[in-house]
Nucleic acid binder design. Structure first.
Lengths: 300, 300
DNA sequence: TTGAAAGCGGTACCAC
DNA sequence: GTGGTACCGCTTTCAA
């Protein structure tokens, strides 16, 4: 609402002086920091990295920057992180998982800041949610393997908060079918190639033979398959392996690796859209289940 | 400098009211935002993710949060990102690479903000630098392979800014030894497993045989080796493969994959230390070469 | 359409 | 030690 000439003059001065608006001051005055916080256990794992990348991209296009918070495995630093994050007055917060301490929940509620929880599912999130049911997922894998005729199961498992839920559901579903002797090799999170090799080695060395192994992630599954092949066993005839998370090249290196596919980009993107809608006062769904799908790869 | 009782009373009120200091206001007043920006092409690639993770961790311990900026491949969004970043008055900036536009350089200088450039080397950075010489690296790989007796070379290459330098140096070193017919399969960055398979397939299908292939990254090398094995060739006798970046499990899956190892954690950590020193007014080196090492893996 | 003035929630400095 | 006050650089509101 200014005259074109004046606008032009202002533009010129901005150019000449190299003026950059101070968004800290702007944020203080307007109570909109244009900063969004994202808290994930790690970005070293491409499963989170991809979601964060989409989230950051989408929000960046809308003029927001994301502050990164790494909560670690286990997420013991979440509470401290949250304090540091809240004091920067973010316009929204991206959280990993749905298991947050009571302190965290009430702080979040008190701050009245839009929150998206991710990577898991509950009908009653703190605020909003985009994810999938780890519970359902665990059961689905159990049924999938059971229906294929397998009866002797093993797990190579790196147990973070959400993997624990998948594990519980997997075991419960099998238990309902009379199977209670699942052999479990637990490794520390995050899982990696070496731990996968070591984990399955342990299962293979001690005790009765296992027909099918469920791995908490595809990097872990990758290690498992390498070890299995190194022992001259073939997959899936000697041992069936199913992973989680769809590590891009794993199925090529090991054509027999089944996996559970999650659209991780979708998590970041939907989360960004929901957050933007809330910030801008638009209507938005509060809970989105992006689901999962079991990808079968039995032969080359 | 207050009486213990008063301090206690204040603490109590803070607890009761749930007071969280507003760092936006604090930043405005003190001209210290306690925000540090990190600009990388992507975090999907674990090579950057790991550095950023360490950087974020170390700075987090010191009370700083990092704002993430994804510049993409090619880094065409860097300039726009910088503007968005600068307006948040970061206390320091982490940059990927040393090739920045003149506008970027002068904006950075004008902002008088500490800057660390990374993943490459120059004796004359904008401000500070921690990385390694992509130039030296390319030459080293050329000599390494040449000295082992190889004469017919191929490259499967995803060319980002820095990979281009490695490539140039590799070719120059070979050229000095009379080798000018290096066969190159270029793929779009970032490299991945599929592109590696496709890239080597192209080299293998058309034209004379290649003895040794240099890949711009280990994911790419991973794809290359899978394709080579799928063709029934053996490594390294039929084809030697050398990658870059030390993808954790690649050497296990393919024991014959040589690679160039970079300590990426070190980049994040050193960058954080340098930045902190500068912010706190302490002395610090301005240029750190973390080097690289060729890791030979010829047999299982 | 433009200009002036009052904050936003801290920090920094100064006098008491 | 303690309390008061002048900003920091914007947004917002209101009057002209």
């Amino acid at each position: 609402m200014v005259k074109p000439q004046k606008l032009e003059a202002v533009r010129a001065v901005i150019q000449r002086t190299g003026y950059v608006p101070n968004l800290l001051a702007g944020g203080l005055a307007s109570k909109k920091s244009r900063l969004v916080a994202a808290i994930v256990p790690t970005i070293g794992n491409s499963i989170f990295a991809e979601a964060i990348e989409r989230f950051t991209d989408r929000l960046g296009d809308a003029g927001y920057k994301v502050m990164l918070g790494l909560s670690g495995y286990p997420a013991d630093k979440e509470e401290a992180l949250l304090e540091a994050v809240l004091s920067r007055k973010p316009d929204a917060i991206f959280l990993t998982g749905i298991n947050h301490s009571q302190v965290t929940r009430s702080r979040l509620l008190a701050a009245k800041v839009p929150v998206v929880e991710t990577w898991d599912f509950t009908p009653t999130p703190i605020d909003m949610l985009v994810g999938f049911s780890n519970e359902k997922l665990g059961r689905s894998v159990a049924l999938y393997l059971y229906d294929k005729g397998y009866r002797r199961f093993g797990m190579v498992w790196a147990s973070d908060e959400r993997a624990k839920v998948r594990q519980g559901a997997f075991l419960a579903a099998l238990s309902e079918r009379g199977i209670n002797d699942v052999r479990i090799s637990t490794v520390t999170a995050p899982g990696n190639f070496k731990k996968g090799r070591a984990g399955i080695a342990q299962l293979l060395d001690e005790g009765p033979s296992v027909e099918a192994v469920f791995c908490s992630s595809d990097v872990l599954a990758h290690g498992v398959m390498t070890e299995v092949q190194a022992r001259g066993m073939s997959i899936p005839s000697d041992l069936a392996v199913i992973g989680f998370g769809d590590l891009e090249f794993a199925p090529y290196t090991f054509p027999a690796l089944s996996t559970v596919h999650i659209d991780r980009s979708q998590i970041g993107l939907r989360a960004a859209e929901m957050v933007l809608a809330r910030i801008e006062g638009r209507e938005t769904e509060k809970v989105v289940d992006i689901g999962f799908s079991v990808v079968e790869r039995e032969s080359t």
